[in-house]
Design a protein around this nucleic acid. Sequence first.
RNA 1: GGAGGAGUGCCCGAGUGGCUAAAGGGGGCGGACUGUAAAUCCGUUGGCUUCGCCUACAAUGGUUCGAAUCCAUUCUCCUCCA
Length: 444
Amino acid sequence: MVQIPDSVSKYTNVYDVLKERGFIEQCTNEEEVRDMLGREKIKFYIGFDPTADSLHIGHFMQTIIMMYMQKYGHTPIVLIGGGTTMVGDPSGRTDMRKMMTQEQIQENGRKFVKLFERYLDFDQGYEYYGHQPTDGPDAPVQNKEPEPGKAICVDNAKWLLQLNYVEFVREIGRHFSVNEMLRAECYKQRLEKGLSFLEFNYMLMQSYDFYVMSHDLDCKMQFGGNDQWSNILGGIDLVRRKDQKTVYGLTFSLLTNYEGKKMGKTGKGTLWLNPEKTSPYEFYQYWRNVNDADVEKCLRMLTFLPMDEVRRLASLPGEEINHAKEVLAFEVTKLVHGEEEAIKAQEGARAAFEDGTSIENMPTTKMDVSDFEGDGIGVLTLMCNVGLASSNSDARRTVEQGGLTVQDQKITDPKTMITQDMFNAEGKLIMRKGKKVYHVIDIK
RNA sequence: GGAGGAGUGCCCGAGUGGCUAAAGGGGGCGGACUGUAAAUCCGUUGGCUUCGCCUACAAUGGUUCGAAUCCAUUCUCCUCCA
């Protein structure tokens, strides 16, 4: 399991640490929260909607926050949105999410949990038995108290999917003002494009989650990305109205670049944590190539280097900033894929961009010698086969524009055939597309 | 339920019978310049067996020598009225 080193900060209150690292964006009551976090060990939760089969960098940042909290003795509750995903969060979106089946959602949820287990110390024996809104004589089984400081995981499908509509509307819905909801920032965009009643309910469901967490598990805080602010406030109000308890909310800045655009998007889409979806090498390269202006922010939020070191690295002048980017890429890749993969990615990158000697860590495709015997295989076809081009036409374009190099020879004729004798003694062939994309063909 | 409007390539958005694989922008890709950065500049951006062919302007069917453009039906979305 990945752990945060003690050198990460000199502060003893986790609030100060999070502040120092620049995570905190909004807090319902800064002083009280800071005081509480310093005084007692609390339970807090963050919700994750399993809309895809892998976590992405935004989730990762939230995971890091949970790690900080756990390090300082608080109990993270990972709330998997198996129920809320059935509805879809409209916050910050201009279009409706694709509807997903329950099986898909459950499957994704399981994958999420697997990833979280690499970063948080879970109470393995813990199981949440479920919530019953009434505490009558036939009160439900008591939920056991999780081991102090250990993370637990709950799925809101457990209490959301069995809700009775009329009951829900009477018990929960009556506490919400539609007028107020419509004013909420998160619906603004959607009011122009249209918002279905399905999605309009999302806020109530998330608020109900907070109520359940507070009521059943004495959870005191909810964290989330800044886009969750209104949803979190909804929950806080609901808890106050139903249980007369005060709970708190804290939101984090979304990871954006200096232009204010979300980070973690590549030309091909999202930067995933799952190595099958985004290779460690690609992942490394993303961070290796961040903009100068974003280096400090990334080091601060995505690595556990001491702040002095972060500041030193980020202020390296001119070309030297590349060193900081290397450190950043290495550290983040290490956290996500482990040290071994990080070293491989780093060496692969260095080999490709600096000395060009090692081809061991470049992405490789194994092929059969017979494919290259006789006339061999056309470059275009080969490029498609190994994923260097998305179609034959795409491959042709690259070649015609002088973007392909095979064994250090620029190829400009799209009709070129790749044959056995072009491979080196070890049976390898290096293809380079553009300046940065390498691929090795191995026929051993 | 009534009246009107809209659906165009990865996204935004022009085009309203032939000159349209479809202007312009964004994004992507390739090249130049660099620091594996940014900014800038140039090229390119549906597919294929690429001097040619095939598939495309929500879906289906029709009018026409010829349709993204005209007509009919369907689907989706928006606005106003109820």
